[in-house]
Computed example of a mutant assay.
Amino acid sequence: MIRLVGAALILFAGTMIGFLQAARFAERPKQIRHLLHALQRLETEIGYGQTPLPEALLRVAKVLPPPLAGLFERIAGELRSASGETVKAAWERIIGGGWASTAMRAGELEAMLRLGASLGGSGRDDQLKHVRLAMLQLQAEETAAREDQAKYERLSRSLGVLGAALVVILMM
C-alpha cells in the first residue's frame, strides 16, 4: 500500500515537473510579445508624447502584466528618486536582477541591456533608433521562442510523465 502511494506521488511529481517546464516554454513567447508592445508604447511616449523617461516607463508598466510591469516600475522609481544613479546603471541593475523572474533568456536580456545603455543619455531621435533596434532583436528572439515552444513544449510534458514512470518501474 505504501509503495502504491509512493508510486502515485512520484508519478504526480514527475508529471507536474514536465508540465511546469512546458508552461515555461509557452510563457516565453508571450512575455516577449508583451515586451514588444511595451517598447512600442515607449517609442510612442518618447517620440510623440515627449514624455520624460520616468513617466514614460510608469505608463508602460501600467499596461504590462507581472513580472515585466514590476521591472519597469522599479526602474521608473529609481529614476525619480534622488539617488544620482544614471539611467544605464539603474536599468542594468534592475533588469539584470529581476530577469530570473521572467521566462525569457539571455538573448532578450542582452537586447534590453543594450537598450538601457542608450536611454536617457542621447537625443530623442537616437533613443528612438535604439528602441526600434531592440524591437527588431526581440522580434527575432520571439520567432526562435515560438520554434522552441513548438519543439519542446510537448516533449517536456512527455518526458515528465515518462521519467516518473521509469522511476516507479525501477522502484518496483
Rank of each mutant, 00 (worst) to 15 (best):
E45D: 05
G160A: 06
A134C: 02
A111C: 13
I169H: 09
H34R: 02
D126K: 11
I75V: 13
R41F: 04
A89Y: 11
E110G: 05
S158M: 10
A13Q: 05
Q21G: 01
E45H: 02
M112N: 12
H37R: 12
L170C: 13
Q31E: 12
L109V: 07
R157V: 12
I32T: 07
A150D: 06
D125S: 13
E141Y: 04
R28Y: 06
A165S: 12
Y152P: 07
I75P: 00
E153I: 10
A69Y: 06
G123L: 10
G160R: 03
G121K: 13
H37M: 13
I75M: 00
F25G: 04
R105D: 12
Q31N: 03
P65N: 06
Q21M: 08
R3W: 12
M171D: 07
G70Q: 13
E108N: 04
R93D: 07
M16D: 02
L58N: 01
G120S: 02
L133P: 04
P29A: 06
A100W: 05
F72C: 09
L115F: 12
L119V: 13
L109R: 15
V60T: 14
L64Y: 11
H34Q: 09
Q149V: 02
L136A: 15
Q149H: 08
L68T: 07
S156E: 08
E141A: 09
L119E: 11
K88I: 02
E110C: 03
A144R: 15
I46W: 11
M135L: 07
M16F: 12
I95G: 03
A56F: 01
I2E: 09
G77S: 04
L58W: 01
A165V: 10
I17R: 05
S81Q: 13
L68G: 07
G121H: 10
G163L: 01
